[in-house]
């Protein structure tokens, strides 16, 4: 764990060295390393030359540049603050509206006139025949857990087969799956619906799990990309020791793929929370207690209901965002590690 952290910050530092600073400022690392998170300092023995060079150049510039660096630093931080504000204003609106005593949209005030927790209590504790947030949450959670487990397993299986094994037709299958993934999903929806209906899985949560996970094998690119970066020698070694592919899959590859598995689990888990098009078609009985959060929230904002529901919609949106934000922040590191070695190396 500790090791990972070190490399992480270290690498981050190196990225900055990759780029010329916009204001032509050069290194002034002394100031920065003081602020850098713990673990930024260790010098890698592998790159002594680099260090020396940097230090030497720093020495040349540091005096004249320090002042400029400070100005640059202020500029950049201000710019970032502005950008972050821009990104967060709508979210802030979501948050404050969720606490608004006016159940509809306010067109004239950003902050509500009166504050209240009523929207949350309505959403969480006072279900009526249409608004059953608790049920929706539970439904979505169940669907998310199962579809996440199945699709993660599928993706790992496909990735391993394509990345670590060589067999006739492999290239063809890879190409074919790339092409298959391009068909607009919105269009095939209606056919999927009738296929599911003929096996009796519409209006059922099992059906939703199937819909979200069955086709997931196509999404193997990122994970395969990650597995591609794991040296063949690791598998060879296991093979020499007499392990079969199944054992290599579980004992060698799975532990090595931890970051990408975590990434995959979280992103598969998130999908059912925001799909409303497919869900609305599949769960079409109109019975509110069968819905997922996304359908429910979407229906709350039906044109005629927006006066009564906008604040509750915001409250509902906020409630699901909390666990998702937490997951996201946990995932950030894995996302960065996993995605980049994966998505980029298709």
């Amino acid at each position: 764990m500790m090791d990972e952290k070190n490399t992480n910050t270290d690498e981050l530092k190196e990225i900055s060295e990759l780029f010329p600073d916009t204001d032509k400022e050069t290194e002034e690392n002394n100031a920065q390393s003081a602020f850098a998170p713990a673990g930024a300092a260790p010098i890698k023995t592998a790159e002594p030359t680099n260090r020396k060079m940097t230090v030497a150049r720093e020495a040349e510039h540091s005096l004249g540049m320090k002042k400029k660096g400070l100005i640059g630093s202020i500029c950049k931080n201000t710019l970032l603050a502005l950008l972050a504000a821009f990104w967060l204003i709508p979210i802030l609106w979501l948050v404050v509206t969720a606490f608004s005593a006016n159940p509809g949209i306010s067109y004239t005030r950003f902050f509500p006139e009166k504050w209240t927790l009523a929207n949350f209590s309505r959403v969480l504790f006072h279900p009526d025949s249409v608004l059953q947030y608790g049920r929706w949450f539970l439904n979505t959670l169940i669907i998310a857990i199962f579809s996440c487990a199945i699709s993660t397993a599928f993706i790992l299986m496909v990735s391993y087969a394509f990345s670590c094994m060589r067999f006739p037709g492999r290239q063809g299958m890879i190409r074919f799956s790339l092409i298959l993934g391009m068909f607009p999903g919105v269009l095939s929806m209606i056919a999927v619906y009738f296929i599911m209906k003929s096996i009796g899985l519409t209006n059922s949560h099992i059906g939703m799990i199937v819909v979200y996970s069955a086709g997931s094998g196509l999404g193997y690119l990122i994970v395969k990309g990650f597995m591609d970066t794991i040296p063949v020698s690791m598998r060879e070694a296991a093979r020499i020791e007499g392990a079969n592919e199944l054992q290599i899959f579980f004992r060698v590859m799975m532990p090595l793929c931890k970051p990408i598995i975590v990434y995959q689990i979280i992103s598969a888990f998130l999908a059912p929370w925001s799909d409303f098009v497919f869900a609305r078609l599949m769960l079409n009985s109109g019975i509110s207690k069968d819905w997922t959060v996304a359908i429910g929230l979407y229906n709350m904002l039906d044109k005629t209901l927006i006066h009564q529901n906008f604040a509750a919609f915001c409250a509902g949106g906020l409630i699901i965002s909390i666990p998702i934000s937490v997951l996201f922040i946990i995932m950030q590191k894995y996302y960065v590690e996993g995605v980049t070695s994966g998505s980029t190396k298709g």
Partner: peptide, 10 residues
């Protein structure tokens, strides 16, 4: 008898 929600307009 189950009651579902569906606006008359849709």
């Amino acid at each position: 008898i189950q009651l579902g929600a569906c606006s008359e307009s849709t």
